[in-house]
Design a binder for these strands. Sequence first.
DNA 1: GCTAATGTTGTGCG
DNA 2: CCGCACAACATTAG
Length: 265
Amino acid sequence: MPELPEVERFKQYFEGTALHQKVVQVEIADAGVLACTAETLKEVAEKHTFDKTDRIGKYLFIETSADKVLMIHFGMSGSLKYYRDDPPRFGRVVFHLANGFHLAFDCPRKFGRIDVADNVKAYQAKKKLSTDAYKMSWEEFEQNTAGRKGLIKPLLLNQQVAAGVGNWIADEILFQARVHPETRTNKLSKNELRLVYDKMRDILQTAVSHEANYNHYPKDYFIHRRGWTDQNTENCPNCGTKVHYMKVGGRATYLCEVCQEPQEV
DNA sequence: GCTAATGTTGTGCG
DNA sequence: CCGCACAACATTAG
Ligand SMILES: [Zn+2]
C-alpha cells in the first residue's frame, strides 16, 4: 500500500492529529519493527512533543523536542492510527499521548521500520536517498539515470534514483509513457526518458491530489487492472487488449504488450 | 493448504 | 567501490 502518495497522506493525517502533542509513554509491542534500540526511541519521544514533520519518498520524519527525528517507514502494509478507545489490530508501536489519545504504528506484516536520526539530512545521506520524486527536477532525474544498463522498471523502484516511486506507480509511468518495463535504461532515447519523467511527475501529482485513494484515480489509469479498485477491468485503456502479467525484477508487473513494445535486441 | 503481496536489503558476481 | 540480479524477510488475505 504505502508508496509516496500514501505516505504524504499519513503525513497530513499526523499533522492533523498527533502533531504538537506530548508523548507520555512509548509502548513497544513488537521490537522487530525497530531499527534502533528501544531505549533510543524512548529517549527521543517520551516526555517530548512532536514538533515538525517532513517526508522524503516513502520515509516519514517527525522532529521531536529532543532535537532528534523519528523516522517511520511503512513497508508493504503499515499505516498510522490516532485513536482514543479503538486500537488497531497490529499496533506494533504505540505512542501514548498526554491528551488521552494514542498514535499507533499499525503494521500487520512487520516490514515497516521506526528509526531515530540526528536530522533528516543525516538519515537521507545514510540511506543515500535521492530527492523526493515529487519534487525532482528533470536535470536530476537525467543525472540519476545516466549510464544505467539495467531494466528501467527496477531502476524506477530504486529509492536512490527516484525516492517514493513504488510498484504500481512504476507500472503506471511505463504504461503511460508506452515503455516496456524490461527496456534497458541506456537504450531509451532522450525523448523517451523525458516522457518517463513527465509521467512520473504527473502521476504523483494526480495521486497526491486524490489523497492516494485509488478509486478516485482517472478512469484510464492502468492501476485499474490490478484488481484493487472498484472500476477493475482486464483490458488496456488505450487499445483494449487484455493486459499482460509478468514478473520484472521479482515484482508483480502489469503491462499492455501492444502499447508497450519490447525493446529490439 | 497454497499463493501472492503495494518494500527494502544482503549476498554474490563481475 | 559500484551496478546489477535475485533471494530473503514476516505475516495476512483470498
Ligand atoms: Zn494497449
